[in-house]
Design a protein around this nucleic acid. Structure first.
Lengths: 209, 209
DNA sequence: TAATCAACCAAGCAAGCGCTTGGTTGATTA
DNA sequence: TAATCAACCAAGCGCTTGCTTGGTTGATTA
């Protein structure tokens, strides 16, 4: 999970590594998780073999199981770490904004920056490969996923009360999640449309003029 | 091609079955394709075995290959038929609308109705399992997919010229596709929000008040 | 200097995979 | 009545899968 973002996000990640919440990307386990996120995103969980993953980091397939009990635990590791990072990062981002429009923009900007940044592969996997995770492990992540959704929901409810958004917060939340996650499959940074532009366009969908 | 009169969606499907463009859902091949669409959507292409598929329609796994040369051809069949149906259906739908707002609404209503209707599983597979299809077979479907996108693009460009939509047509098109496809993973018809409501909410995102 | 330990290798196993083959069935046609 | 044919079965083949086992290595520590 390479950063590649400016500001305090890099520092936040370093804190989380230091406190053991996410693995050091320079460690063998961290390198495996980054490679797994990349491969699971490109070929899906079922479409990725442990031999693919091992080859990607330059070891033999059996050696993976020195770091993970089984393949499900690798997917769990990818998802657990990215959902923790998403939560911590969004909490920090929202703390900087006080008025409604800025807070809604923060939601959108945060999620777009995340999915097109270093943790983007892991976030895509979290969204699109959820069904591949064992039920037992899903339960262990669910609370953190719901916490993230509550941050969105609360912020959108404020904006709705303030008359800034036109449709029901829970519907808007889902529509925006869908639009933003899908952008990983078409938007390429560095083209005509800058990331700031994309944020602005998405915000235009959400809020009144 | 089609014989002029744009009838109901059911009639359109019957015409396509009669002309051999899509298989009869009552035939063995049609039942296999419907079951494949369901399973590929639920568990992914790689996560679905030919034994799963055979069991679902009540035959043995080897018997599948009396109808399809290999597993890739099954995925190809699912995608080829649904993309044909989507194109024919959207062409017919747009023919009924003349002014900009109605045409944009038709795009949204059509796609939402499709993904939450009978061909919904196949459409989800088309969108989310595209990478699982062999490159050779992707090429054979690409032109029809692009034709569908051109219908969207042209309609949104008209709406943009008319001042009805606020952001670039190609960006809006992608954002809406993402939002609509994702609705298959959260929206359940029969709840508080009717399908008409969902169409109206999505349209609200797209167009000016 | 000896002991320890994380990280990895080498080899392979049992189960499951896509797919093949030769044959059976029962309805339709000549 | 005989011939034909789509649809399917029964059995299994060769390969890949996730994972296990026992051993090696080279850096770190006592």
């Amino acid at each position: 999970m390479n950063t590649g973002e400016p500001g305090s996000f890099g520092q936040l990640l370093r804190d989380m590594i230091a406190s053991g919440q996410i693995s050091d990307p320079a460690s063998p386990k961290g390198r495996l998780l980054a490679a797994a996120a990349k491969l699971f995103r490109e070929k899906g969980y079922s479409g990725t073999t442990v031999r693919d993953l091992a080859a990607d980091v330059g070891i033999l397939s059996g050696s993976i199981f020195h770091h993970f009990k089984n393949k499900d635990e690798i997917l769990f590791g990818v998802m657990k770490e990215v959902v923790s990072a998403m939560n911590a990062s969004l909490v920090a981002r929202l703390a900087l904004e006080s008025e409604s429009r800025g807070r809604v923009k923060a939601l959108i900007e945060h999620e777009l920056t995340f999915i097109h940044g270093g943790p983007g592969n892991a976030m895509s996997v979290l969204v699109y490969e959820w069904r591949a995770l064992s039920e037992a492990r899903q339960e262990q992540i669910l609370e953190q996923r719901e916490a993230y959704e509550r941050l969105w929901q609360g912020t959108l409810e404020e904006a709705h009360t303030a008359g800034l958004i036109r449709i029901e917060p829970d519907v808007l939340r889902q529509l925006l999640h869908g639009a933003i996650a899908w952008s990983a499959n078409w938007y390429k940074p560095g083209g005509d449309l800058s990331m700031d532009d994309l944020v602005e366009r998405t915000l235009t969908l959400a809020v009144q003029e």
